[in-house]
């Protein structure tokens, strides 16, 4: 479904991703772990089309199509979704209006009918319930004045509305208390299907107690240094990352 091959990316001549290869098949959940600064968020943003990063080598395909040539909106419409580690606050922009526009853009892209405000409201209400968010959030400005946890839930809400093929969750668990974590995980689990896949970027294995990954990968210095199954996450929790990460100048 999503194939990443030998991906290299940099920002201002500063090499961040140094040859990442990863294959994600429908129905799978992949966890990506790794120390701070190892390039996890960069990988997520490069996949979603953040033009700050320059891809110098490698390819990324979604269902056989090269996405690196697509603009960010086409990637999104094609089924890629990133729940940002730091969602931006957009003062004045109404959450529900934004979501309806995004939903309709996708419907249109897929040749399906667009939803009018009434129809969309019904869709939105059901998704709000899924992530246990109060309906008030629909009428607030996007992420504006939201707490850290509320922002993360808002990302999951967007994911639920857009129903992507590949969802990349970048540390959606950090900053969440255990209840919020459970809600987010339930939201994600409800969206799991044999047709879509999830990439979970996380620091902690606790999220993986709620969302069972099929594969766990460790990213260090912009490369995948180890892959395994769920037991790798437990091992990392016990031993840290040092045993996997070779000192940069060592």
């Amino acid at each position: 479904m999503l194939t990443i091959h030998n991906l290299h990316a940099q920002i201002d001549e500063n090499k961040i991703l140094n040859g990442i290869s990863l294959t994600v098949k429908p129905g799978e959940v992949h966890a990506i772990m790794g120390p701070n600064g190892s390039g996890k968020s960069t990988l997520a943003k490069v996949i979603s089309g953040d033009s700050h990063y320059e891809v110098t080598d490698g390819e990324v395909t979604l269902e056989g199509k090269n996405i690196l040539d697509m603009d960010p909106e086409t990637r999104a419409l094609s089924g890629i979704f990133l729940a940002f580690q730091y969602p931006v606050e957009i003062p004045g922009v109404n959450n529900a209006e934004f979501l309806r526009m995004a939903y309709n853009a996708k419907q249109k892209f897929q040749g399906k009918p667009e939803a009018d405000p009434m129809q969309f409201d019904a869709i939105l209400q059901s998704k709000l319930e899924l992530v246990e968010m109060s309906p008030d959030f629909a009428d607030r400005a996007v992420n504006f004045g939201f707490s850290g946890g509320e922002k993360k839930r808002n990302e999951i809400l967007q994911m639920a509305v857009l129903n992507p093929k590949i969802a990349i969750l970048d540390e959606t668990d950090s900053g969440l208390d255990i209840d919020a974590l459970r809600i987010v995980a339930e939201g994600v689990n409800q969206l799991r299907s044999p047709d879509n896949a999830i990439i979970l970027i996380t620091h902690y294995q606790r999220l993986l107690n709620f969302i069972q990954p099929d594969f766990v990968h460790v990213l260090a210095n912009g490369q995948i240094v180890k892959s395994g199954d769920k037991s790798l996450a437990l091992e990392l929790e016990a031993r840290g990352y040092d045993w996997l990460v070779s000192p940069v100048n060592g």
Partner: peptide, 28 residues
């Protein structure tokens, strides 16, 4: 804000739609 525009595009909005929302937001 390029970051705001990117956020909107990453949800499937076109440049024009993203700008419209941001300008509306600014006027709001």
């Amino acid at each position: 804000e390029p970051g705001e525009l990117f956020y909107l595009k990453s949800r499937g909005l076109s440049e024009a739609q993203g700008q419209l929302l941001l300008l509306k937001g600014f006027s709001q």
